[in-house]
Nucleic acid binder design. Sequence first.
DNA 1: TCAAAAGTGTTCCTGGTACACCCATGC
DNA 2: GCATGGGTGTACCAGGAACACTTTTGA
Lengths: 230, 230
Amino acid sequence: MTHCYEFPRPAITVDCVVFGLDEQHTLKILLIQRNLSPFKGQWALPGGFVRIGETLEDAALRELQEETGVKDIFLEQLYTFGAIDRDPRDRVITVTYYGLVNLGEYQLEATTDADEAAWFPCDRLPLLAFDHEMIFQTALNRLKGKLRYEPIGFELLPKKFPLSQLQKLYEIVLGQELDKRNFRKKILKMDLLIELDEKQKDVPHRAARLYQFDEKKYQLLKQKGFNFEL
Amino acid sequence: MTHCYEFPRPAITVDCVVFGLDEQHTLKILLIQRNLSPFKGQWALPGGFVRIGETLEDAALRELQEETGVKDIFLEQLYTFGAIDRDPRDRVITVTYYGLVNLGEYQLEATTDADEAAWFPCDRLPLLAFDHEMIFQTALNRLKGKLRYEPIGFELLPKKFPLSQLQKLYEIVLGQELDKRNFRKKILKMDLLIELDEKQKDVPHRAARLYQFDEKKYQLLKQKGFNFEL
DNA sequence: TCAAAAGTGTTCCTGGTACACCCATGC
DNA sequence: GCATGGGTGTACCAGGAACACTTTTGA
């Protein structure tokens, strides 16, 4: 069965740049290996065609799960790429999303599609299909920008985390070292972290206190004009 | 002639939220009156279908000129809206842009399409077609956000402007009064304004010195990590 | 000479930055 | 007892915020 229109229509896809923090020391993204032409065998961002009855975000979440098994994650629209020749076959416009996951809680499941999925360190990506390198760069810039003035970093950490891990995350993504005392002072002063009565386990040194981000409190403060900024 | 595809495809449109500053005192946006169903007779954002051989931005610029005569303006991608029922006829995904113009330099030309175009104050918009109210709100929020940390405000002013006009612009968009001395100190300290040997003319009081934004210098500083922030 | 906006400095206080040592724990 | 990271306070400095008067010009 075919679907016909009076004017030619571009195809619409979604693509996802999903960031994860590996052992809290390397920023990685999720890629899949294409088993179809074009760019067969090359690595690419997970994504695919938007179905006629689903929203863009639904499409992104569905493709992500189908191709990588990853689900229930923070996902936000990034940018829409519409260069005419970005796909050699056809005019394809892609609406891109970036996502954040706590890598520790995710094992890559066997994918239902035959594509292989894997995490790659952001500073050593393979050659990517289509214009996915550009999409990745856009996502990385967005992540760096947003991290400063929105509390999205917590999405990359487990629910309970020591402050040092949070600091490490900022250092990795922003690419600069931060002073431990100043970092703690600043983040604690915002009063958005819940101090837990728990400590790290199985560490070969003094165990650090664990904290939890207070999402509800943040939402309240945000409505009152509060601005997270680090 | 028809165009057929194996799977159904959404239609792709672009829509533009173009802001202008009227007499330097009211923030307005550009609307057109629809002369076609649906929402016939209602006001809507200028926009239309993306052609198969043009980029998204080209489509936005073209529709803008066709429907309103406005061209050669600052335009930046805003967000892509893809709710399933946002158009009652068909599945339509719209890639939206926001634009900034110096209203003083623009007269609305007779439009080639029959639609009527007009500027409306942002705080007194008519009922808008489709989900255009939501798109407008998104654009306004983006404008407010960007104005603080990127020098886009100059796009809303003539090339040569007195500092008081720049301040007024910030006050209008951000919705709060600013201290004159502090504002001047801050903006002049950045050293991004060229002090001209010209003054206002035809004003019924002391004429203010005119300034000009130094785009080249800003680009240089930006590369070196400088951040515009007001 | 009056009205209307232009233009200009100082003080105070907050918040950022720089910086070094002791503590708890596991091995 | 040693190695590893956890945890803490202070002094200095820069930049933001508050604030009022004189100047210029046209009507």
